[in-house]
Write a protein that binds this DNA or RNA. Structure first.
Lengths: 339, 339
DNA sequence: CACATTAACGAAAGCGCTTTCGATACAGAG
DNA sequence: CTCTGTATCGAAAGCGCTTTCGTTAATGTG
């Protein structure tokens, strides 16, 4: 490894001047700057991030944490899409992402401590669980932070406009003639779940449509399997709905599977609209009509917000609501004429 | 931030002794160790990773790089699954992952330089492109490295047994009675593409089945769209195959889409077997029969190999071939009786 | 020509930690 | 009682870099 001292020796200047030349300080002449830069590339000099961070107290890294509740981590298409977008934007600004865990070498600690140890400049967390203690702890620290997919009145959050998204879905279904509309919901302890339920209810009320309790089914944590179970429950009802709004694409896909297996045709017998617009939604049969979350924009928005806090060294408390969009495909159809 | 000097002052020992106590050196008495550890937790002491790395030349980080060829990065389900598995294993051993880019602050450099700058202890790269210069550069450096999904005779690689995978697919198809079997291949410049072609040919030859040129279609880089195009080409043939082995699930899904849209029934008219077993494979209609790559094991194996090199500070050149597995679902059926 | 500016550079301290090596004290050995 | 060995501790240098502040020389001003 070649250091600024090596450059100093080679060029005949002091390490101070070398450092300054490398960092564009004004008090070094053009000529010496050129000379130093030149031999730097000649000798293949690379700065040492650790030394730099130690000295400047800035590491140019951002810690990322996934809610571990759903145990899928990077594999979840929605999460990974957001992170990928976040990453691209953060990179442009010069930040690298570091994925840390709860355990520090053998000893286990909290995420916060781990990030503190790593000296990250900020944290991005993707979590839906508003009462995750790990997340709370980080929010209450004074590390710059942005959280995605949940609300919190103590930090910057960015999330989709799930209330409108719910309404959007219902209004669309209604525009197709449906009046008996059920909702397979995400757990109400989760913000996304709750908001979509609200959207459902709000739209239904505005349309003066009934929302019997049996039509509101808690699908839990958005998994395919839970979607299956929820749909099974729904299909056991004596009075079936003609359309159902499902709070997540994974659940919707599970639900469709069960529906089809029971001989109910989609969309002829039952219209289904999902939420998220994961890749798979375009390739199941029928193609899933859904409400798209703008993962790209969620990611860059989060990055912007975090970086802003880091540069102005000041916590920003805000809630960025990202619009969602209806994606019409094939899983919804007009209400069949009653015989 | 509280340092070992603070602990030293508080406990009355020197910073040296504090450091030793913290790091379990033998030459510090039980009593003082206890006292130091105690006040460390009392005062909320956390070590500073940068200082530690600077001093020890070990950062406990691993750099990860994705081939950028396919531009999907983390979003690709196959890649993200592997990384997730890698991550879990690496974490257990105390390593954090850092995702770096090609640009260092404004200036752009190579991945290698970026990782060198970051002082990672090792690199894991997931790339299919054997002639990616960035990857080559890293392999030729003396940073410990493991690469996933391609071969190289100069470093540790881990990849699926694609040759056997190809044979597996063909033999399965043959066992169903098929003899006219086509292959929509991945680009032969990519190892995975080439091996699967080899597997296809080898098995076909062994079975004494013909492999006309028209039956071997280059699907390119494994995308859904390329799958569509390849299948369209295939269906334009005068003499259609009754089964087709497709080198990737994404391509297979695109291919199925086109096939269905042209009225060819799967599996009645055409059997299709994919490769990878991404999540989506289980949820398209019909459910895709495929060859599963063991992403979990690919990940942990890569982690083990990399860590081994890091601890023994010695490059290991090896090729770890991970077995694949046939997953029977619904997209393959017995050969229809000829009329 | 005397003086105040400015430009260009370097010494040195400091960031938080590790690690070598020497110092001290006390035990037991002879 | 002297000597050797062991247990425990600390001084200090070093990791590679930044940044403050002082020094020197050159420039301009009147």
């Amino acid at each position: 490894m070649i250091t600024i001292y090596d450059l100093a020796k080679k060029t005949g200047f002091s390490s101070t001047t070398v450092s300054k030349a490398l960092n564009n300080y004004p008090d070094v002449s053009q000529k010496t700057r050129q000379a130093i830069l030149q031999t730097a590339t000649e000798m293949g000099y690379l700065p040492n991030a650790h030394a730099q961070s130690l000295s400047t107290k800035k590491s140019w890294t951002i810690g990322v944490m996934f809610s571990e509740a759903n145990e899928v981590g990077l594999k979840h298409p929605f999460f990974s899409a957001i992170i990928e977008s976040f990453r691209k934007h953060a990179e442009k600004e010069g930040y690298d992402l570091i994925l840390a865990s709860r355990n520090l070498r053998s000893r286990d600690t909290s995420y916060l401590e781990h990030f503190l140890y790593r000296g990250v400049d900020g944290i991005v967390v993707i979590s839906s669980d508003p009462k995750d203690e790990q997340v709370q702890e980080m929010i209450n620290s004074n590390l710059p932070i942005v959280v995605i997919d949940m609300t919190n009145s103590n930090c910057s959050v960015v999330l989709s406009d799930d209330l409108s998204g719910g309404e959007l879905a219902i209004n669309y279904l209604h525009s197709l003639g449906h009046t008996k509309i059920a909702h397979i919901a995400g757990d109400a302890t989760i913000h996304a779940g709750k908001e979509r339920i609200q959207g459902y209810k709000k739209a239904m009320n505005k349309l003066r449509l009934p929302t019997p309790n049996e039509y509101l089914i808690n699908g839990g944590l958005f998994s395919i399997e839970e979607g299956r179970q929820a749909m099974a429950k729904l299909l056991d009802l004596p009075d079936l709905p003609t359309a159902v709004f499902i709070a997540g694409d994974h659940m919707a896909i599970g639900a469709m599977e069960i529906a089809k297996s029971r001989g109910v045709k989609i969309p002829e017998d039952l219209s289904i609209i999902g939420y998220d617009d994961i890749e798979m939604a375009s390739y199941v049969t029928p193609k899933l009509t859904t409400v798209r979350q703008d993962t790209d924009y969620l990611g860059v928005r989060a990055a912007q917000l975090l970086i802003k806090q880091m540069v102005q060294k000041k916590k920003i408390i805000t809630e960025d609501i990202i619009p969602v969009q209806l994606i019409e495909r094939e899983s919804c159809g007009p209400l069949k004429k009653q015989k």
